[in-house]
């Protein structure tokens, strides 16, 4: 199957029809929801926070950010701002009455928020699009660097970002993570289900100087020059010891994984249909 990134620019690929197809597919909803929860678990938010969602699309992640801690969103409900380059995707987010503020914007042009605005940022399945330049005046490297520089500045000290993306190959993986490191982030790549069809790559980014330093920054500190630092998996392997396929420990772990994956997430927030009133 060809990558959509190689066929059309994102605003044309995600037209009305594709955006609707994407948002209503229960398979996609499930995958995006799982990845959002995974990203949230890496952000370690402990209180309602101000969050940026880059390439927010129709708000599948946003609905999770708006949910409460009791509903499964750590530290929630959060307040979020999302931007996306596809007007059609944003149109669907409007229809769904998501709670976040939406912007039509191109991540490759930067992040137009003042320094220290956000506690955290997430980006689910979007950053790989920046590896394709939209015009001849711009290079993918230039767009990536504007994005990560802007993202870095817009996060508060001690803030964090998690970008799940689909790198085309190892070179793209390297290009994306080194752009983040050059912007000043502590960065690490972690991969879930590596070398399978459902492999997922998460770029975990930290901004030094805040109270968060010292927990998972241990995972991601000092990554300069290293392309993949898969510490999470290594830590798990160590813990697992000589656990064998089919053993009790193995079954328990698998069960836990399945449970995590089977987690039901409400598609509609409790605010759907809330009152709107025009004031003068």
């Amino acid at each position: 199957m060809s990558r959509p990134e190689d066929t059309l620019p994102p605003d044309l690929f995600y037209n009305d029809a594709e955006s609707r197809k994407y948002t209503t597919s229960s398979r996609i909803q499930k995958i995006q929801s799982d990845m959002t929860h995974r990203a949230l678990s890496l952000l370690h938010l402990t209180r309602p926070s101000m969050i940026l969602d880059v390439g927010c699309g129709s708000g599948l992640s946003g609905e999770i950010l708006s949910a409460s801690d009791a509903e499964g969103t750590p530290g929630g409900p959060h307040v979020w701002v999302g931007f996306d380059i596809s007007a059609s995707m944003l149109g669907i987010a409007l229809e769904k009455e998501v709670e976040g503020d939406l912007f039509l914007a191109d991540a490759g042009q930067g992040v137009p928020f003042r320094a220290g605005t956000f506690d955290a940022a997430i980006s689910i399945s979007a950053v790989q699009w920046l590896c394709n330049a939209e015009s001849s005046e711009e290079s993918p490297a230039g767009r990536l660097s504007r994005f990560f520089n802007g993202l870095y500045a817009s996060l508060r000290r001690g803030g964090r970002a998690v970008c799940q993306f689909y790198p085309k190959n190892d070179e793209q993986k390297r290009m994306v993570s080194s752009a983040a490191v050059r912007a000043g982030f502590g960065a690490g790549l972690l991969e879930d289900d590596p070398a399978t069809k459902s492999a997922k790559t998460y770029l975990v980014l930290t901004v030094g100087g805040g109270e968060l330093e010292g927990d998972i920054t241990g995972v991601v500190r000092g990554m300069e020059g290293i392309d993949v630092m898969d510490s999470r998996r290594r830590a798990k392997d160590r813990k697992r010891g000589d656990e064998r396929k089919g053993s009790r420990a193995w079954i328990l772990r698998k069960k836990e994984q399945m449970e995590r994956k089977g987690k039901v997430v409400k598609a509609n927030s409790k605010y759907t249909g809330r009152k709107r009133r025009v004031i003068f």
Binding site: R47, P77, H78, R274, K275, R276, R277, V278
Partner: peptide
Amino acid sequence: DLEIVETEINVLF
């Protein structure tokens, strides 16, 4: 043009 969109208050936020 302004609009009021009511949401639940979030004091911790």
